[in-house]
Simulated assay, not measured.
Amino acid sequence: MSTASDIKGYLSQYLTHKECFDLAKICFKFWKVRYHNMDCLIRLIRSIGWLASTSGRSVQYNVDYFTTIQDYMKMDSINIWVYDKLHKKRRKVTLRVSSDNRDNKKTEVSTFVNFIHQKVAYIAMKVLKTMLYMKAPVYTVYDNFLTLPYLALK
C-alpha cells in the first residue's frame, strides 16, 4: 500500500490510481522472483527482532563506531484539560505517552529497516573517514552527514 501511494505521489499525472497499485504489485513480484533469498533474510531479521521483543529485551545492532538500541513501547492515550485563552474555555487534549509494555509488532516491522539504516550509516562513516585521511574534498548528501557546499571545496 505504501509503495503504491509513493508511486501515486510521483506519477499521478501519468498513471491512474489503479495503475499505481498494479505497478506496485509488479515491482513486488519482480522482487520476490529476482531476489527471493533476500526476502528470507528480511524475514529472518524481522523474526529476531520479534523474538527479542517478546522475550522482554531490546534489539541491539553493533558496528565499530556505535551501538543502536531499538526498544519500541506501546503508546497509551491520556486526556488532560487545558484552558484555551483564545476561545476562553476549557478543552480536552489527548496526549500519547509511552507505556511500560513493549510493542512487539512495531519492533518486528522496523527491525530490518533499522538494521539496514545502521549498516548504510556505517558505510558512509567509513567512506568519510577514508576521504578525510586522503585529505580529499567531500560533499555529503546522506541524512545525518550534512556538508555545506563551500566546506566541500576546502
Results as ranks from 00 to 15, higher is better:
Lys85Asn: 10
Ser58Arg: 02
Trp81Tyr: 15
Val63Met: 03
Arg43Thr: 13
Leu23Ser: 07
Lys129Asn: 12
Thr54Val: 12
Ala121Trp: 03
Tyr142Val: 06
Ala124Trp: 00
Asp71His: 05
Val33Tyr: 00
Tyr122His: 15
Val113Thr: 14
Asn79Leu: 05
Thr147Gly: 08
Thr94Ala: 09
Phe115Tyr: 11
Cys20Leu: 04
Ser99Phe: 03
Ala124Ile: 04
Ile69Asp: 09
Thr54Phe: 12
Pro137Tyr: 01
Asn37Arg: 10
Lys18Pro: 07
Val138Ala: 01
Leu146Ser: 13
Asp6Asn: 03
Ala52Pro: 00
Val93Asp: 06
Gly9His: 14
Phe28Ala: 05
Ser5Cys: 15
Leu95Lys: 11
Asn114Val: 06
Gln13Arg: 15
Met38Asn: 07
Tyr35Gln: 06
Tyr35Glu: 10
Gln13Ile: 14
Lys32Leu: 08
Tyr150Val: 04
Ile42Asp: 07
Val82Leu: 11
Ala24Trp: 00
Leu95Ala: 00
Tyr72Gly: 02
Phe21His: 15
Val33His: 03
Val93Phe: 09
Ile26Pro: 00
Phe145Val: 06
Asp71Lys: 04
Lys154Ala: 00
Ile80Val: 07
Phe28Asn: 11
Met1Cys: 03
Val127Thr: 09
Lys105Asp: 07
Ile123Phe: 13
Lys154Val: 04
Ser110Ile: 07
Ala152Lys: 04
Lys29Leu: 07
Tyr142Arg: 03
Tyr83Phe: 11
Leu95Cys: 05
Asn114Ile: 15
Phe66Asp: 12
Tyr72Asp: 13
Leu86Pro: 00
Tyr65Pro: 00
Leu11Val: 11
Arg57Gly: 02
Arg34Gly: 02
Leu15Asn: 02
Tyr150Ala: 09
Lys29Ser: 10
Lys92Asn: 13
Ser77Leu: 10
Cys20Lys: 06
Asn79Arg: 07
Thr130Phe: 10
Leu41Lys: 09
Ser47Thr: 10
Lys135Trp: 01
Ser2Trp: 08
Leu146Ile: 15
Leu41Phe: 12
Ser99His: 02
Arg34Tyr: 15
Leu151Gly: 00
Ser53Ile: 03
Thr94Cys: 04
His36Gln: 09
Leu23Ile: 06
Lys88Trp: 03
Tyr133Thr: 11
Arg46Cys: 15
Thr16Gln: 05
Ile26Thr: 09
Leu23Gly: 00
Ser99Ala: 04
Val97Phe: 03
Val59Arg: 02
Leu86Asn: 10
Ile45Met: 06
Ile80Asn: 01
Thr130Tyr: 12
Ile69Tyr: 02
Thr140Ala: 08
Ala52Thr: 01
Ala152Phe: 00
Met75Val: 13
Ser58Pro: 07
Phe66Ile: 14
Thr107Gln: 14
His17Glu: 10
Leu151Asp: 12
Lys154Cys: 05
Lys129His: 12
Ala136Thr: 09
Ile69Cys: 13
Val82Asn: 12
Val97Arg: 08
Phe28His: 15
Tyr83Gly: 08
Leu146Asn: 11
Tyr122Glu: 14
Ser99Leu: 04
Arg102His: 00
Asn114Cys: 15
Trp81Ala: 14
Ala52Asp: 08
Arg43Ala: 13
Phe21Leu: 15
Tyr150Ile: 07
Thr130Asp: 14
Ala24His: 01
Thr68His: 10
Thr111Lys: 03
Asp71Gly: 08
Pro149Asp: 04
Lys25Gly: 07
Glu108Ala: 08
Ile69Gly: 02
Glu108Met: 14
Lys126Gln: 07
Asp76Asn: 12
Phe28Tyr: 07
Thr147Ile: 03
Ser53Gly: 00
Ala136Leu: 11
Lys154Leu: 06
Leu132Gln: 10
Thr16Asn: 01
